[in-house]
Amino acid sequence: MTASDRPRISLLGTSALLFEAPGAFDLPHQRRIWSLAATASKWPGIREAIPGITNLMLTFETPPRELDSLIAALNAGWDEADGLMIGGREIRLPVIYGGEIGLCLQDVADYSGLSVDDVVSIHAAPLYTVFALGSHPGYCYLGGMDPRITMPRRQTPLQRSAGGSVSIGGSQTGVSASPGPSGWHAIGHTTWTFFDPSWQTPAALAPGDTIRFEIERVIR
């Protein structure tokens, strides 16, 4: 077994710890992360277990005096984790590609060497799975994007991008729930309410839900 086969565990100061799973950015790995999150969230001293993309952040209620036992528990938990199957809902999201909000559609086309129409059809083709929530209230990270439309994140993050932006960052895609800073490239937008603090569960979507983008319009 090589080092790259083992999870990476690193500190985020004294308030949290990051567990990064080895292997591919795919649904089987993500299902194991969901499973590990469900287990670790019940451990004493753990405030929340927050899945990321094939990784897991644990925030501390009180920082542990020593970390060895927690690290050992995470490693063992990962080895034992069976994929957690979540029977989520399927959401259809109409998207207007391009235009003022989806300003980077042409940039993605240029970078990938594809036409704008190809980028749109490639982006709208898959049934995406909500891998994780994060970034800002209600934002979903989606798994399943075609690697042909991968585009590295921005050199310098934008101070403000629009709410509802459908964007690409590296090999990931997602939809922002509200306006704010972003290091990703917006290729379109949608109007949908992803978050309301008055709801029983404030976020509309949860890991395991699926999303299909419907091409409402392409503004070239």
Partner: peptide, 23 residues
């Protein structure tokens, strides 16, 4: 260049975007 899969961060984390200027 390092491009990470998105993961949780907390206040205090010092990120280095591609321009090499810490945030």
């Amino acid at each position: 260049p390092i491009e990470k899969r998105s993961h949780g961060i907390v206040p205090g984390v010092i990120q280095i975007p591609p321009n090499g200027q810490p945030i």
